[in-house]
């Protein structure tokens, strides 16, 4: 990814107050694939007994990453919103570690984008959570081949 693209991607995140509040960082954004990460933060703890981050914060990271993946799709949607999102929490994220989400917009129609995402911490081989979702698509290029057929 070029420096320019990285900059544009980071600006995308910084335009979202909630993503900024959680200190999210865009690590990659290209052709329907996005990577967004978030540092460990004591304010996000859901269970003080273990120090594990609340599922809702992981959900917010996944939602942001999925939305970014949709926006970066080659059909160039002008806007998107989450229709539904299902998260499976496979294990607690390890406290004090950064959480990284990778999302892929794997199918696009004129009106709906289908996305899946995985979240990991430093133990990359054991996902923390996976998500699948459907997103609205607003104002995609009408001449894009292979959509809505």
């Amino acid at each position: 990814m070029t420096d320019h693209k990285v900059k544009v991607a980071q600006q995308f995140i910084e335009a979202l107050p909630f993503a900024r509040t959680l200190n999210m960082r865009m690590d990659m954004l290209e052709d329907g694939i996005a990577e967004v990460s978030m540092p460990y933060d004591a304010r996000l703890i859901g269970d003080p007994g273990t120090g594990v981050v609340h599922g809702g914060a992981v959900s917010a990271l996944m939602d942001t990453c999925c939305g970014a993946a949709v926006m970066s799709h080659p059909t160039a949607p002008k806007g998107t919103a989450t229709l539904d999102l299902r998260i499976d929490y496979m294990r607690p994220a390890t406290p004090a570690q950064r959480i990284r989400a990778h999302a892929e917009c794997y199918h696009m129609t004129r009106t709906v984008a289908f996305v899946r995402a995985t979240a990991i911490d430093e133990d990359e081989n054991r996902p923390v959570a996976i998500a699948t979702g459907a997103f609205t698509v607003e104002g995609a290029k009408p001449d894009f081949k292979g959509i809505g057929s």
Partner: peptide
């Protein structure tokens, strides 16, 4: 203001809503 996800509309961030429901 920090709960906003779409500053143009403006609308709450889907992640803020998801967090609210899960809490």
């Amino acid at each position: 203001e920090k709960l906003i996800g779409n500053p143009v509309l403006p609308a709450l961030h889907g992640g803020a809503t998801a967090s609210f429901l899960e809490v």
